[in-house]
């Protein structure tokens, strides 16, 4: 994983809560055997009409939203299916961070393991961000802050290990492999075998 220390960009806001991973990437796009190129399918059914034309009212289709790298979503973002295709699609689309007042467990885990910042903030700052799309933000992973120049600074907490892995670009599989002697010892000593 590449190291992620800082993300700077503008926000685009999806105003609804409980945005599930089926909306982020529909199941019909999951028959792939690769991680690549899924950005095209991110929020597909919200972005496009059946004839393939864009839905002009959808937030991501606004001219001002085209180069936004920070996605702000309603409470309980990423609920539902465990498909890792959801963060893969968001990253490939160009997002570097997702911010909400609550993010579903599996999605948050999957996102952080791929270097997509999944950041939970308090509800009053969340409401402000929801009401102010297009806000320029600087996210500092080490400090745990979202700075909005001239407006406010928002603090967030992140699991220490996840943060360490992001900052150092650590691949968790490598970390686990280093524990192989502990894993072997555990298999040896347990008093029942699966």
């Amino acid at each position: 994983m590449k190291s992620v220390k800082r993300v700077q960009g503008r926000t685009v806001v999806l105003p609804t809560r409980d945005i599930d991973t089926d909306q982020i990437i529909a199941a019909r796009f999951l028959t792939t055997t690769s991680k690549e190129g899924l950005g095209e399918y991110a929020f597909y059914d919200l972005r496009y009409n059946e004839d393939g034309s864009e839905k002009p009212e959808f937030a991501l289709n606004q001219a001002a939203a085209r180069d936004c790298t920070i996605l702000v979503g309603g409470n309980n973002f990423g609920c539902g299916s465990s498909r890792e295709h959801a963060p893969w699609a968001l990253l490939d689309y160009g997002f570097e961070a997702v911010i909400s007042s609550q993010i579903a467990d599996i999605f948050r885990n999957n996102a952080l393991k791929n270097g997509l910042l999944a950041i939970v903030i308090d509800s009053s700052n969340h409401e402000w961000l929801m009401a102010n799309p297009g806000t320029e933000c600087v996210i500092d992973v080490e400090e745990g802050t979202i700075t909005i120049p001239g407006k406010r600074s928002i603090e967030f907490t992140m699991d220490g290990f996840a943060r360490h892995c992001l900052l150092e670009g650590i691949d968790q599989l490598g970390f686990l492999q280093q524990q192989s002697s502990a894993i072997e010892a555990f298999e040896e000593k347990r008093n029942w075998k699966p």
């Binding site: 890792e84 599996i106 999957n110 393991k113 791929n114 686990l176």
Partner: peptide
């Protein structure tokens, strides 16, 4: 449930 990265783990 786990994601695909964790399936690899």
């Amino acid at each position: 449930g786990i994601g695909t990265t964790e399936v690899g783990h």
